[in-house]
Amino acid sequence: MVRAGRNGYLFDRFKELSIVALGWAGVGSEGDLSDKAALCSKLKDFYPEATEQSIFVAASQLVRFAHELQVGDRVVTYDPRARIYQCGIIKGPCEYHPNADEPTELTNRRMVEWGREKARDDLSLPARNSLGATLTLFFISSSISSELWSERSLTPSNDFVTEKDSEATFDPSAIELSELADEKIKDRIVRLDEYSMQELVAGLLRAMGYKTIVSARGPDRGKDIVASPDGFGFQAPRIVVEVKHRPRERMGPQEIRSFLGGRKPHESGLYVSTGGFTREAYYEAERSNVPLTLLDFEELVRAVLSAYASFDESARKLIPLTPIYWPL
């Protein structure tokens, strides 16, 4: 597994460039990735506030990326927006690509031939738990690999096992625990049916101070929820909401145009899609004359967590959560 940056923000770049990549600011070239002790020293100079453990883990991952991964090995990265694992085969050695216009995480690259995709929801619970590890780079067991790959995989993989070194007992930061928690929460939300999802979005809007009307089951005539200060839509803002609970399907421009076609000048639109949106859908929303917000799965989870303290009992029952405290 090579994660595509925090919250998968580099996933599209990994696919476009046919690469996986790893990098830290302050690491100058391939030569820096040969001596772990020297690399630790260099990282410590560049990040004086970092703990020794975090420096050691960063150095270990960089050295592994450069020297332990081999051409022909299977590699996986993850898109948390679409909840898709992208599987491929490493096709080249580690190469250094300094570019001031690119994130530092793209500095050290390996060429990849991307193959099949696997939805997170198609995996067993042990596989989802294993792949939810917080490390940027880690080896995947053969049993989990067999779930990710079909019988028609491109080449057999090396059978890696997790090393029993300090990385195995890595103490995650609060940020990394938060990312892991987000994925677990999405696992729970994705199991909701379409009507429960509408109720969850309505609960979110109520937590934000609106009163809501949820459409009855059946044809919704282009609106699943109407939210407004008075609950009837007489007072502004009147927000019309469409909820699409299709985790494996991104909404395109046609769906956006269809939704906008039923809107009136005094209305605002909110389109929620757990499968996300295509680039063209965002273009369509930007040039709309009606104020329209597109909310994908990542943004929905962030909004839910931000407003959860104000959720009413009916909304909390849909996704029961408990707060935790973590030392900084």
Rank of each mutant, 00 (worst) to 15 (best):
H97S: 04
P103M: 11
H97C: 06
E105S: 15
E105I: 09
D101N: 09
I84A: 00
Q86L: 08
D121V: 03
Q86A: 09
C94R: 09
T104L: 13
E105G: 15
E105R: 10
P98Y: 10
G92K: 14
A119Q: 14
T107L: 02
P80T: 08
G115K: 04
C94W: 09
T77R: 03
G92A: 14
T77A: 05
A100N: 15
I89T: 15
M111E: 14
A119L: 09
E102H: 10
T77M: 04
T107W: 00
R83C: 14
P80S: 10
A119C: 09
R74T: 04
D121F: 05
V76K: 02
E95S: 14
P80F: 06
R120K: 15
G115R: 05
G115T: 09
D79R: 05
R116G: 03
R109I: 14
K118H: 07
V76Q: 06
A100Q: 15
M111P: 05
T104H: 15
Y85G: 01
D101W: 01
T107V: 02
N108A: 10
T104P: 11
Y96R: 12
R120L: 13
G88R: 03
G88S: 07
V112T: 04
P103N: 11
T77Q: 04
D101P: 00
R110H: 07
Y96S: 12
A119E: 14
P98D: 10
Y85S: 01
K91D: 13
D101K: 07
R110G: 05
C87W: 04
W114C: 04
P93H: 08
Y96C: 15
V112R: 02
V112C: 06
V75L: 04
R116N: 06
T107F: 00
C87E: 04
A119N: 11
I90E: 01
G92F: 13
M111Q: 14
P93W: 06
Y96M: 11
P93Q: 09
E117V: 02
R120W: 12
R109A: 07
E117D: 12
I84P: 00
A100K: 15
L106C: 12
R109F: 12
I90M: 03
K91V: 09
A119R: 14
R110C: 07
R116W: 03
D121H: 10
P98L: 08
D79H: 08
E95A: 14
Y85R: 01
E102T: 05
R110F: 08
D121M: 06
M111H: 12
V112G: 03
C87V: 15
D79F: 02
P98C: 07
W114L: 03
W114M: 04
K118N: 02
Q86F: 06
T107C: 02
I84N: 00
M111G: 13
Y78N: 03
Y96L: 07
E102Q: 14
D101T: 04
D79Q: 10
N99I: 08
C94N: 12
E117G: 03
E95G: 10
G88C: 08
C87K: 04
E113C: 08
E117W: 02
Y78P: 01
I89C: 11
R110A: 05
A119K: 11
I84F: 01
K91A: 15
G92W: 11
G92I: 13
P103K: 10
R81I: 12
I90G: 00
